[in-house]
Design a protein around this nucleic acid. Structure first.
Lengths: 332, 332
DNA sequence: ATGAAAGCGCTAACAT
DNA sequence: ATGTTAGCGCTTTCAT
């Protein structure tokens, strides 16, 4: 069984290659019935267009730039997964994906057909830079209102985590923030605060500790809290990695999760599963696909859109109902 | 100035497209002089073959699978950079690159033209699996002898780090290992030991601590050493990330690097520069290119080769000559 | 050793 | 609304 080509699909559907191509590229001028017919044949045959051929047939470089700060690479898993999602989607569209670190912005001299911005921070110069160059783009994370962005509901996610803990009886809930340069961090903090408000709990600056999205940062923040003698029965972290660090710090201090302290994360990376971590899931693949979609639309000249992706709380073993500390200690 | 194509090169060199193609692909049957002539024109014009066109003209899927464990994503920066190098190289050859996590090995049902294995561990089943499927591959990291691998001189690198510290007067040198499942970790430990032997220093099991290649792991290992009251004036870490953790732990304990303790890393990732870390540099780009090269050779039916890449010691501020502890404290 | 020419699978311009 | 056709830039026979 040799490779399925567009010609094969056309023959099988009893139409011309041109029509199939039009359907594939969502171009106007095809009867609704024919469109459905062709779609059916495509599905049945499991036909996937050859990226190389598409790239060749269209003009231009057919390169999408993935703009990211070098720091972001530290983000490791999260950006790795996001990148996978983006690459796969663009590959199918016949686009290559090229990583362009912010420092090497000279790579924009040979402009890519489009760009995806990752890790946008508060006053990021890149959106304006790209606009000036006339390169269409979309971004993961919010910034100016007139750009195409997709973002996860950071505040809503954290608020849900807080409510979950409150429902379990927790009243003294710590929060460990991410890197304060990013708005994800700020929004998650806001979500934490609004979660407290919802539950009628007081805001307390002494319960908020600075982290940096890394496991080490989470560990040190937790140690600081412990050393200061702050009282708490739960910790909400702005990332799974930090939650990992927090759990390690608690255990090193002889405490047990969740018996002595409940911990929640954010992201739902593989590490969360390994640790049995209750966390706020970000649908990474979906985010990547949305970002790709928005960019493709921009490149096609369609208007700017935004996309706010909802999160969902994944409850695992790291959060549990509050029992008096004494009881918890006894149990252990 | 429109795009430079093979036709343009052919015209400029006064030969046919076919000949240029033969030169580009190192195929036999071209006069040495013509070959040189064409090469010259290619360089002068800055001609780069169009990946899409190559892909289309050759047959097959033209997909390279990047096989990696999900854990590896945690490696973050290192694997990110390695991946960049691989993708760029293959892109120029007209190959797409597809990440295949070990868990999703069903992706091999539609076999890629070749595969690169990352993070090979001691008895990794993947080489045999690929062999059974008849998929050519190369790997980063050593394993069986009859496979194509490229590896960095792990032992040599660590040995050099130890010698450097010994030359600075250090005698009580700690070592923090990586994840013990990987051979990189084992080889670096061996390098540490042979460095001690070279210098006539005794091996001491009490100076070796288990890490896991992460910053958090380095932090905790260092804390353990401190808590046990082990005496030491220097630490060699099996990775930059762990060195980062070690430095944090030392500072949290009120010690100063390098005045109280010298620290070395391994990798020379961007973080090493930021920290002013003395470290063993791995030429990541070169490693990626070598791995790509070996795979391309395999796919062309050429014999298996190996490639051992040398490391180099980058001396920065985190290592310094030993002075008596008292003096060091005074200075601060 | 080199040239000429036929595709590779697709898109897009031009017909109908 | 759909079919037809000419390339996109390269590799690869098949001639010479």
């Amino acid at each position: 069984m040799s490779k399925i080509t567009i010609a094969r699909v056309a023959q099988e559907a009893g139409v011309s290659k041109g029509t199939v191509s039009r359907v594939l590229n969502d171009r106007a001028g095809v009867n609704e019935e024919t469109r459905a017919l062709v779609r059916g044949v495509v599905d049945r045959l499991g036909y996937v267009p050859d990226p190389g051929a598409r790239q060749l047939a269209r003009r231009g470089r057919h390169v999408i730039g993935l703009l990211l700060d070098d720091d972001l690479r530290r983000g490791g898993t999260y950006y790795g997964l996001l990148r996978d999602a983006l690459e796969e989607r663009f590959l199918n569209e016949g686009y290559h994906t090229l990583v362009i670190p912010t420092e090497r912005s000279d790579a924009l001299d040979t402009p890519p057909d489009g760009a995806i911005l990752l890790g946008v921070h508060l006053d990021d110069p890149r959106p304006r830079q790209l606009e000036a160059l006339g390169i269409p783009f979309s971004m993961v994370g919010r910034s100016l209102d007139d750009t195409a962005w997709v973002d996860v509901d950071n505040a809503g996610g954290l608020r849900e985590a807080v409510r979950h803990l409150v429902a379990l009886g927790h009243k003294r809930i710590l929060h460990i923030t991410g890197a304060h340069t990013g708005q994800a961090s700020v929004l998650r903090l806001e979500g934490y605060l609004s979660g407290l408000r919802d539950s009628g709990l007081p805001e307390d600056g002494a319960l908020i500790f600075d982290g940096d999205f890394t496991a080490l940062g989470g560990y040190r923040a937790t140690r600081r809290a412990l050393e200061r003698g702050v009282e708490f029965t739960a910790i909400t972290c702005a990332s799974d990695e930090m939650a990992h660090g927090a759990i390690s710090a608690l255990e090193d201090a002889g405490m047990r999760v969740p018996w002595d302290v409940s911990v929640t994360g954010f992201d739902d990376l593989p590490v969360a599963g390994r640790l049995g971590l209750t966390t706020v899931r970000q649908p990474i693949t979906q985010i990547g696909e949305a970002a790709a979609e928005l960019l493709l639309e921009r490149m096609a000249g369609k208007p700017v859109r935004h996309c706010l992706v909802p999160t969902s709380l994944i409850v695992r073993a790291s959060s549990a109902a509050l029992v008096s500390t004494t009881v918890a200690r006894d149990r252990h």
